Amino acid sequence: MSSNLHDKQKSLTRRFLLILGVATLLCVTIFGLMIMFNNNLELNMGTTQRMAVGGLLVAYGIYRSFRIFKKQPQDE
C-alpha cells in the first residue's frame, strides 16, 4: 500500500501550484466576505453594490475551488 502512495506523489511544480491555488482561493474568498460584511471599509458603494461585488468574489472563489480539486486525467 505504501508503494502505491509513492507512485502517486505529485511533482514539486504541481505541489507548488496547488499551494498557490489554495492561497489564491482563500484570499479571494476572504476579500469577498470582507467587502460584503465589514462596514468599516471606506468604499464608495451602496449596500447592494457591496453585496454584488462581494458575492461575485465569493462565487469566483467557489469556482476556483472546484477547478483546483478536480481530478486531472494524468492523476488517475
Results as ranks from 00 to 15, higher is better:
S2A: 10
S2T: 13
S3K: 14
N4M: 14
L5W: 07
L5S: 11
Q9K: 15
K10G: 12
K10V: 14
S11I: 07
T13H: 09
T13A: 10
R14S: 15
R14P: 13
R15F: 06
L17S: 08
L18M: 02
I19R: 05
I19D: 02
L20P: 00
G21A: 02
G21H: 00
T24M: 04
L26M: 15
C27P: 01
V28D: 09
T29P: 09
T29S: 07
F31L: 02
G32D: 00
G32I: 03
L33F: 07
M34S: 09
M34Y: 04
M34N: 07
I35D: 05
M36S: 14
M36E: 12
F37K: 02
N38C: 08
N38F: 12
N39R: 15
N40I: 06
N40R: 08
L41Q: 11
E42I: 15
L43C: 07
N44C: 03
N44R: 07
G46R: 03
T47V: 14
T48K: 10
T48E: 13
Q49A: 07
Q49E: 10
M51K: 03
A52N: 01
G55M: 01
L56W: 11
L57Q: 06
V58P: 05
V58H: 04
A59L: 12
A59I: 10
G61M: 13
I62A: 11
I62F: 09
Y63N: 03
Y63I: 08
R64F: 00
S65G: 10
I68P: 00
K70G: 12
K70R: 12
K71S: 05
Q72W: 10
Q72A: 09
Q72S: 09
P73V: 06
Q74C: 09
E76R: 04
